[in-house]
Every structure is written in structure tokens, then in C-alpha cells.
Simulated assay, not measured.
Amino acid sequence: MPAYKDEKTGTWYCKFSIHSVTYYMESRVLPYFNDKTINEISPAYIRKWQNGLITDGLRPTTQHTINAKLNTVLNFAVKYYGLQKNPCSVTGLRCVEVLALTPADTLRITIRSAVPPRPV
């Protein structure tokens, strides 16, 4: 996977992650928030946007990813640009939580999917 180093900060970045962030911001965040300044974004507006992600049929993990990108931008605005409060921190996430599988769960699922069902 291609990577590059930011010479100013010394941080390594994966090009794939930069492309995915750009894609999500341009396709899912900016069209909805483009006409608002950052201090006009309210928790109610965030909630409407989250509902739009749900009605678009996106998977919960994708909803979470997109919400996390917007949350990061708004946290940056709070820290460096004087935004009083991050509206995402008020609304939280509206998607289903993803549960992590243990190695035993993964093995059990793999074995079940490999064994053909018995005829009835």
C-alpha cells in the first residue's frame, strides 16, 4: 500500500486513507453542509444529516466512519478556530454498534460456513 511521510510533522500517511477521507467528505459531508458556516451547524442539523445517512441505506460501519470524519473536523474547529462546542459530541452516533469478534467466534463462524447443511 503506498504511503508517504509528511516532512513537517514526521507522520506517515497511507494514500488510501487520504483518498477515503476526501471521498467521504466530498460525497457525504460537503453537499449537506456546504451552505452553512461552521458556527451555524447545530446538533439538530447534525441529527438530520445522520438520518439522511441512515435513509440512504449506508451500512452502520460506513455511517460511523463518515460521522467520525465530520467529528474530527469539528473538534479541530473547537481547538483552533474558537467553535464553542462540537455539535457531534451532543448528538452522538445514530448507527448500530459493531461488535468485535473474538478469535473463538471467528473460528466458530468459519467452521459453520464450511460445513454443508444436512438434508432434511
Rank of each mutant, 00 (worst) to 15 (best):
Y32T: 03
R28E: 15
Y13I: 07
A3E: 14
E40I: 08
L58H: 00
R59C: 04
N75D: 14
P31M: 08
Q50G: 02
P60I: 02
K36W: 14
I66N: 01
K8T: 07
L58K: 01
K8V: 05
K15D: 14
F16G: 10
I111N: 11
G57I: 07
T62H: 03
D56C: 01
A100F: 13
Q63L: 02
V78N: 11
L53D: 03
R112D: 14
M1V: 10
D105H: 15
T72F: 08
S113K: 15
S89R: 15
Q63A: 02
L58A: 00
T11Q: 13
G57W: 08
L107Q: 14
K36E: 03
F76P: 00
T22C: 02
W49Q: 04
R94H: 13
G52M: 05
T62K: 02
A104F: 02
D105L: 01
W49V: 02
V21Q: 08
R47T: 10
Q50C: 02
Y4K: 08
F33M: 03
L101A: 09
Y24F: 09
N75G: 12
P116R: 14
I66A: 05
P60W: 01
Y81H: 13
V78A: 09
Y45Q: 10
C95S: 15
R108F: 02
S89H: 13
K79Q: 14
Y23R: 15
Y4C: 05
T102P: 05
D105K: 04
L30S: 08
V21K: 10
T106Q: 12
I109W: 08
I18T: 10
W49P: 02
C95Y: 05
K69T: 10
F76K: 11
R118M: 09
K5C: 09
I46Y: 07
N51G: 12
L101I: 05
D105Q: 15
L101P: 00
V90N: 09
G10E: 08
E26I: 01
K8S: 01
A3C: 10
T110D: 06
A44Y: 01
L107N: 10
E26A: 12
C14Q: 14
E97I: 07
R112Y: 05
P60H: 11
K85W: 06
K79G: 09
S17M: 11
P2A: 13
P116A: 09
E40Q: 15
N34R: 14
I38E: 04
T37D: 07
D35V: 06
P116I: 09
G10Y: 07
K69S: 01
G10Q: 11
E40C: 05
V98E: 13
D105W: 07
G57F: 07
D6F: 03
W49Y: 08
Q50M: 10
S20H: 11
Y80S: 07
K48H: 11
